[in-house]
Amino acid sequence: MIDELYSARILSLAANLPHSGRLAAPQGTAERVAKLCGSKAIVDVVLDAEGRIADFAQDVKACALGQAAAGVVGESVIGATSQEIADARDAMLAMLKSGGEGPQGRFEGLRALKLVADYPARHASTMVAIEATLDAVRQASQRDTADTRTSLAGAA
Rank of each mutant, 00 (worst) to 15 (best):
D3V: 06
Y6P: 15
S7D: 08
A8F: 11
L11P: 07
L11V: 12
S12V: 06
A15I: 00
P18W: 12
P18R: 11
H19E: 05
L23D: 03
Q27D: 13
A30Y: 03
K35A: 11
K35H: 09
G38A: 07
S39M: 11
K40S: 06
K40R: 15
I42P: 04
D44Q: 00
V45K: 00
R52G: 01
I53P: 06
A57F: 00
Q58C: 04
K61W: 13
K61L: 11
A64C: 11
L65I: 15
G66W: 11
G66E: 10
G71F: 02
S76G: 04
I78V: 13
S82T: 05
D87P: 14
D87I: 07
A88C: 08
R89S: 10
A91M: 03
M92W: 05
A94D: 15
A94S: 14
A94F: 00
A94E: 15
M95C: 08
L96Q: 04
S98V: 06
S98Q: 15
G100I: 07
G102N: 09
P103H: 15
Q104G: 12
Q104H: 12
G105R: 07
F107S: 01
G109H: 05
V116M: 08
P120S: 10
S125E: 13
S125P: 04
T126M: 09
M127R: 12
E131R: 06
T133M: 01
Q139A: 14
R143K: 07
A146W: 02
T148F: 00
T148P: 00
L152P: 05
A153E: 14
G154M: 15
